Simulated scan of single mutants.
Amino acid sequence: MHDFVKDHRRWGHRRAWRNALAEGYGICRETFRRIWREEGLRVLPRKKLKRLAADTHRDVPAGQYPNNVWALDFQFDSTWHGKTIKICNIIDEYTREHLAFTVDKNINAVSVTELLDVACLEHGGRPRVIRMDNGPEFIAHALQEWAAEDETIQAFIPPGQPWHNGFVESFHNQMRDELLEDNSIENLEHARLLVAQWSSRYNNFHPHSSLGYLSPRKYAEQWKQENTVNT
């Protein structure tokens, strides 16, 4: 019986009994069912499907100008004594700027909308698109309502394919290599201080080959100057 269940996790005692008869075991169904129950065997439940956002907009291209597409994602780490730290980051896909972040033990959808509001205030308005995965914080009604206020498009990447959010994935790799791997974090306040210091250095001094070896902040300032002159 146990071997049968191991190989056929979605088959119940009736199919198992039929299989036993075919194998030459002379046992009635009621006796088989009693032994089946005494052994604690059961049909394993189906895996619960992950809820996905209804309107995915997966075909949104990369940002074409500042505040066009913002990418959101979570980064995880822990303190030196094992307590989990969760970081939510927002970057501008066009300028590569680290627009905003929050660090906490838990970050829910309301916290994400508050972080977006902070980023909007500090960077001159809302984005046209926010790109993210199908995590529960991102598909929640609170974020849908926030996006609906100004018709911001929610661009959800395909499940299990983080490379579709490549800008923020690249950013997270840099954050891990340059910050998280090199520091022993004491607590949340220490983590917030370290991320803030690293973010300032990244925005102001980190050269990007794709930006002509300018830092994200310098590139954003150059774009603004050029487009102010042109208008």
Score class of each variant (00 low, 15 high):
His2Gln: 13
His2Trp: 03
Asp3Trp: 14
Arg10Met: 14
Arg10Lys: 15
Arg10Cys: 12
Arg10Ile: 04
His13Gly: 06
Ala20Cys: 03
Leu21Asp: 03
Ala22Met: 08
Tyr25Ala: 14
Cys28Ser: 15
Cys28Arg: 08
Arg29Ala: 10
Arg29Lys: 08
Glu30Gly: 07
Glu30Arg: 15
Arg37Asp: 11
Glu39Gln: 13
Glu39Trp: 11
Gly40Asn: 05
Leu44Arg: 14
Lys48Gln: 09
Lys50Thr: 01
Arg51Lys: 13
Arg51Met: 05
Ala53Asp: 10
Ala54Pro: 04
His57Val: 06
Arg58Leu: 01
Arg58Thr: 04
Asp59Leu: 07
Ala62Val: 12
Gly63Ala: 12
Gln64Gly: 15
Tyr65Val: 05
Trp70Ile: 12
Leu72Arg: 03
Phe74Tyr: 08
Gln75Val: 11
Phe76Asp: 05
Phe76Gln: 06
Ser78Asp: 00
Ser78Cys: 07
Thr79Leu: 00
Trp80Tyr: 12
Trp80Arg: 07
Thr84Phe: 06
Ile85Arg: 00
Lys86Tyr: 05
Ile87Asp: 00
Cys88Phe: 06
Asn89Trp: 12
Ile90Arg: 03
Ile91Asp: 02
Asp92Asn: 11
Glu93Phe: 00
Thr95Asn: 03
Ala100Tyr: 10
Asp104Lys: 11
Lys105Val: 14
Asn106Arg: 09
Asn108Arg: 08
Asn108Leu: 07
Ser111Gln: 14
Ser111Leu: 10
Thr113Arg: 03
Glu114Gln: 06
Glu114His: 04
Leu115Asn: 05
Leu115Ala: 13
Leu116Glu: 04
Asp117Pro: 01
Val118Arg: 03
Cys120Ile: 10
Leu121Trp: 10
Glu122Met: 15
Gly124Asp: 14
Pro127Tyr: 08
Arg128Trp: 03
Arg131Ile: 00
Met132Ser: 00
Asn134Cys: 06
Phe138Arg: 14
Phe138Ser: 11
Ala142Pro: 02
Ala142Thr: 04
Leu143Gln: 03
Glu145Gln: 14
Ala147Arg: 07
Ala147Met: 06
Ala147Trp: 09
Ala148Val: 01
Ala148Lys: 09
Glu151Leu: 08
Ile153Lys: 04
Gln154Asn: 03
Ala155Ile: 07
Ala155Met: 11
Phe156Ser: 06
Gln161Phe: 07
Gln161Pro: 01
Pro162Ala: 00
His164Phe: 15
His164Tyr: 15
Glu169Gly: 09
Phe171His: 14
Asn173Thr: 13
Asn173Ser: 15
Gln174Thr: 11
Met175His: 12
Arg176Cys: 13
Glu181Val: 02
Asn183Pro: 01
Asn183Ser: 04
Asn187Lys: 00
Asn187Val: 05
Glu189Ile: 08
His190Leu: 02
His190Thr: 02
Arg192Leu: 11
Arg192Cys: 03
Leu193Met: 11
Leu193Gln: 10
Leu193Arg: 14
Leu194Lys: 10
Ala196Leu: 12
Gln197Val: 04
Trp198Gly: 12
Trp198Met: 11
Trp198Arg: 11
Ser200Arg: 01
Asn203Met: 14
Asn204Ile: 01
Asn204Thr: 12
Ser209His: 05
Leu211Asp: 02
Leu214Phe: 04
Ser215Pro: 09
Ser215Val: 13
Arg217Ser: 15
Lys218Val: 15
Tyr219Val: 08
Gln222Cys: 07
Gln222Arg: 15
Trp223His: 12
Lys224Asn: 14
Glu226Ala: 11
Thr228His: 13
Val229Met: 06
Val229Trp: 13
Thr231Ile: 03
